[in-house]
Simulated scan of single mutants.
Amino acid sequence: MQMKNFMIDESLKELTKHHTVVMPIACYKTTINQNIHGYIPLHWHDEIQFVLIVKGEAIFQVNEDWIVVREGDGLFINSGCLHMAHEKDRSGCVYICLNLSPYFVLSQELYPTYVKPYIQATNLPYLYIDANEIWGKNILDAILEIYQCIEQKSQYYEIDISIRLPFIWKNLIDNGFKLEFVQTEIVKSQRMKQMLSWIQQHYTEKIMLEDIARAGQLSRSECCRYFKRFLKCTPLNYVIDYRIQKSLYLLQQDDSNITEVAYQVGFNSTSYFINKFRDSMNMTPLAYKKNKMAQLRLN
C-alpha cells in the first residue's frame, strides 16, 4: 500500500493542483487510511468540494462542526472552509472527491447572481448530501458521472463535464436555503486560520500560548476558546499533535534518527517526544519507523 503525503502550505492551504489539462477541476478517488497521517489533515482551498462516499463511512470536520457521512451519501464543502477527514470505525473509507473553481460552475454572467452569494454566505460552510433526497441523488449521480468521464476520457468528455456542473449547482441551491452574511463569523474564521498558519510556520521553535494568541489578535483565554470551539483541544495540545504528524514523514526516511527527528519537529526532549508519540499513535516512534520500513520493502 503506497502512503500518500497530503501537502499544504504555511497557511494550511492545500497545494494539490485541482485541475485537468484544460479545466479548473479535479475528480479522483481517495482512500483515507492511505494518507501518511492516517487521515486527511486540516486544510482549506479556494475551490468548492463535493464528496461522494463509495465505501465505508467518514467523519468530516468543517470549521467547528463534525459530520458523519454514510456510504452512498456525500458532502458539499464551501470555498475557504477549514476541513479534515477521518475514516469511521476503521471502515476503509473511500470517497470520490470533486474539486472545482467556483468561477467554473456557471458562466461569467451568471456567477454574481447564482454562485457568489453562496460562496460568501457565512451559514453555508457545508451541506450534507443525502442520497434519499431527489436533489441529493441528482448531485451524487452527477459526481460519479464526472469521475467516469475523467477516467474514460471519451470523446467530448470535457463538454459532458461542463454540462453536469450547472446541474449539480442548481440542485444544490434549489432548496430555499436562506443565506446569511455575518461579519463576525468571517473574522473568526480568518483569526483561526492566522493562528494555525503561525503554528505551521513556527512549530520547530519554542511556542508559548501568548505567541499563538498574538497571531490571532486575541487574549490567551479567547485563544483557548477558539481552539476548543474549532478543534476540541487546547492550543498547545494542537501544537504537540501537529509536531507528531510532521514527524511521520521524517521517520520514514532510511537515515532518520529518533532524537534528531524529535528536535527537528520542535521537541526539546527525546523522552517527551516518545511519550507523546505513543499517546497519539499507540506505538513508539521506533516501532512506527520499523513498521513503515517493512511496508516499503514489501512494496
Rank of each mutant, 00 (worst) to 15 (best):
R191K: 11
A26H: 12
F230A: 14
I134F: 13
K55T: 02
M208A: 05
K55P: 00
E180L: 08
H45K: 06
L165S: 10
S107M: 08
P235F: 07
K276E: 13
G92I: 03
K137T: 03
N268I: 07
E185W: 03
T259D: 14
G266Q: 10
A131N: 06
G56P: 05
I173P: 03
E180T: 02
E205P: 00
T204Q: 12
G74T: 04
C233S: 14
R90M: 13
Y28C: 00
I48C: 15
T113W: 14
T16C: 07
E14T: 07
I173S: 04
C81V: 02
S154E: 09
S11Y: 13
Q190A: 07
V62R: 03
Y103V: 04
H18C: 12
Y288F: 13
R278W: 06
I77D: 05
E222Y: 15
Y156E: 08
N237V: 09
N275D: 13
K17V: 14
V94G: 04
W169H: 08
E222I: 11
Y103W: 11
N237F: 13
C81Y: 13
Q183L: 09
N5H: 15
N291I: 00
I36H: 15
F277N: 10
D211Y: 01
Q190W: 09
D241A: 11
G92Y: 10
K292A: 14
Q148K: 09
E158W: 08
K116H: 15
Q61P: 01
P166D: 06
K232E: 13
N275R: 13
G80Y: 10
I199G: 04
K289P: 04
M208S: 06
C27H: 04
Y288V: 02
L124N: 02
I8S: 11
F104S: 10
C149Q: 06
H83S: 11
Q155A: 12
P117H: 12
I53S: 02
Q2Y: 10
S101R: 04
V115W: 15
A26M: 11
L110E: 12
M281E: 03
Y103G: 04
D174K: 05
M3K: 09
Q148H: 09
M281P: 02
F6R: 11
I146E: 00
L236V: 00
N175Y: 11
N282A: 01
N5Y: 15
F76Q: 02
L179M: 07
I150H: 01
C81Q: 10
Y126G: 08
T204A: 09
P235W: 04
F277C: 10
N275E: 11
Q252F: 03
Q152N: 03
R225I: 04
Y111K: 01
M283K: 04
T259S: 14
W169E: 05
K116C: 14
N78R: 02
V51F: 07
K289I: 14
V54I: 02
K292G: 12
S269C: 15
V22W: 15
L209T: 09
F76Y: 13
C81H: 12
R229P: 01
F230S: 08
I159V: 09
R90A: 14
E222M: 13
G74M: 07
I212V: 05
V21D: 08
L179S: 10
K153L: 01
